[in-house]
Nucleic acid binder design. Structure first.
Length: 563
DNA sequence: CACGGCTGCCAC
DNA sequence: AAACGTGGCAGCCGTG
């Protein structure tokens, strides 16, 4: 049963039961404040299957339910699903794709919940009508040969919506964060917390050392321009202030400079200011943005959840009596490529615990490093260095897999759309790109224009090449989390997600579960089972030629101990 | 003074 | 090993 939540008036909401034929079979209206009670009752009902809650936006509706200790099993996030269905090549021939943009195409903003009725003109979203449109589009989903693709696209919509639930629940739960430990980490490398406006002692000392080694006194090391001038004044052949370039220069000032940069980065990105801003009550609560990346990966909005440096991961500590189960999908993208291309030789390597070692064992390459850079090059479109050197061997050993990414690259170079395994499609290149291509094909085009157009085309080809693999990996990760979330719910009585084992953090191919200690081994096993199950969900019982989606699982008190 | 582009570095 | 995919974010710096 689908249950549609319709904003009816300020502080009022309608709840509609909708059957499989899109007919409304029951309808109630109530104060929004009473919604958690109703949702809780419907979720707890033992005589009826759990509803799928249909709402315009999980990020708008779900946090209030969670705050009232009400969790739902399933939802349909209309805004996220709308975005997928509008762009997917599988629905390109439906009216859903061709009608002009509407309010459903607007990106969500943080103030949506406040402004939905305050906008001028007021925006009235009709979730029931939108659900009907989306179901029609989904039913009409078809591949290039006209074959129905409702199954895989439906899986994508379900996974995307489950991801939205996970994201809201993780923001609600937060990452267990030991602020005192974070302060100790900072003090150990930077010195004690300084008064505002001053550098910490060890950072200042490093700067003094740098100035002495350069013999240049008065410059701001945080200004790339001033720093470069100082380096050149001291006779260093630097052309930029990038660390990887500076590392090549042999000069006594380089070591203290690199150390200064490292410390300065820690201070500005994850120092005391970050701690004050983002950690409260022993929890780090980043805002996740499901579907925020074109490929389907999540983005984040504030807190830098996608770039939590290893330096501070020691501050992520389980509560007393609890522990962390940290799981990482091993060589996820290469395994995804093997499964989606149907390349049986690569799939065989993908049965190994370490896929790169599997490639070495099969004789495709000599070392694990060669396998790794060869695969990265294949998926990113690398042409230089080790990646470029490995390319012929990759093509020879895994022709079918390499043909798939090569095909995606060529399509991108022509400005065409490519799609992931479940049917999320890439955006089209922008107007600038198209203009550059058409100008370069004009008769009077200069060599410079043609080279620029070719360069842009190759760049877009690298994007589409990577899109199909990164995007399908994101789909696998969504399925992994969606399955895991439902299994963890079974271990937690009631609607309070933090009362039992729960997802606490997610990063592309890695999940963290915060769990009571006595359930840790059970959770670890569930995490492994869900990884296998996610592979079957996407690629069928045979799992894309037998690829095994291996995960490394660590049960640790601190995130720093994982991996 | 606000804002956006740029640089550089963090994560996967 | 090299500068090849996706992002976020802090600070600098020029512009209006």
């Amino acid at each position: 049963m689908h249950v549609v939540v319709v904003p009816a008036a300020p502080d009022r909401v309608q709840v509609l039961d909708v059957d499989d034929d899109d007919a409304v079979v029951a309808k109630v209206e109530l104060d929004t404040a009473d919604l958690p009670g109703l949702v809780n009752a419907r979720e707890a009902a033992v005589d009826a299957p759990a509803p799928r809650w249909v709402w315009p936006d999980t990020a708008t509706w779900y946090p209030a339910l969670l705050a009232a200790q009400v969790a739902v099993a399933r939802c349909w996030d209309l805004r996220l699903c709308h975005a997928i269905l509008r762009a997917s090549a599988l629905t390109a021939r439906t009216t859903f794709a061709s009608v002009p943009p509407s309010a459903w195409d607007q990106p969500r903003t943080q103030t949506d919940s406040d402004r939905l009725f305050d906008l001028d003109p007021p925006v009235r979203l009709d979730p029931l009508e939108e659900l009907r449109r989306q179901r029609r589009a989904l039913a009409a989903a078809a591949g290039p040969g006209g074959e129905s693709e409702s199954g895989r696209l439906g899986l994508l919509l379900a996974a995307e919506s489950a991801g939205a639930l996970v994201a809201a629940e993780m923001t609600h739960s937060g990452v267990p964060w030991d602020a005192a430990e974070h302060d100790r980490i900072l003090a150990a490398v930077l010195g004690k917390r300084p008064v505002p406006g001053y550098r910490p002692a060890l950072l200042e000392a490093k700067l003094t050392q740098l100035r002495a080694a350069l013999g240049v006194g008065d410059f701001n090391p945080d200004s790339p321009g001033e720093l470069l001038k100082a380096l050149r004044l001291a006779g260093l052949p630097a052309t930029s202030t990038r660390s990887w370039e500076l590392r090549e220069i042999d000069h006594p000032a380089i070591a203290p400079l690199l150390e200064y940069k490292k410390l300065s980065r820690l201070l500005t990105a994850n120092g005391w200011h970050w701690l004050d801003t983002w950690v409260a009550g022993g929890r780090f609560r980043p805002v996740y943005v499901p579907g925020g990346v074109v490929t389907g990966r999540w983005a984040s909005d504030g807190g830098g959840a996608l770039q939590l440096p290893h330096q501070v991961r020691g501050a992520v500590r389980a509560d007393p009596g609890w522990t962390l189960v940290v799981a990482d999908a091993a060589q996820l993208e290469p395994r995804i490529l093997a499964a989606m291309s149907g390349d049986l030789a690569m799939a065989r390597a993908g049965q190994a615990t370490d896929m790169y070692e599997g490639m070495v064992a099969a004789g495709a390459v000599e070392t694990r490093e060669q396998a790794k850079y060869g695969m990265l090059g294949a998926m990113y479109g690398g042409t230089q260095g080790e990646s470029g050197r490995m390319l012929p061997r990759m093509i020879k050993a895994y022709p079918q897999a390499l043909a798939l990414v090569e095909h995606a690259a060529r399509a991108g170079e022509r400005g065409e759309v490519v799609s992931t395994w479940l049917g999320r499609s890439s955006p089209r290149p922008g107007d600038d790109w198209r203009l550059a291509q058409s100008e370069a094909s004009d008769e009077g085009a200069t060599g410079v224009e043609q080279e620029r157009a070719r360069s842009l085309a190759r760049g877009w080809g690298r994007f589409t090449r990577n899109f199909i693999v990164q995007g399908t990996a994101a789909e696998w990760a969504l399925c992994w989390m969606a399955l895991l979330r439902l299994r963890l719910r079974d271990l937690t009585p009631g609607g309070d997600v933090t009362a039992g084992p729960h997802l606490a953090f997610f990063l592309h191919d890695e999940v963290m579960v915060h769990t009571p200690v006595h359930l840790a081994e059970q959770v670890a096993e569930i995490v492994r089972e869900c990884a296998t199950e996610a592979g079957r969900l996407l690629f069928g019982p045979a799992g894309g030629g037998g690829v095994e989606f291996q995960v490394s699982v660590a049960v640790v008190d601190s995130y720093a101990e994982a991996k």
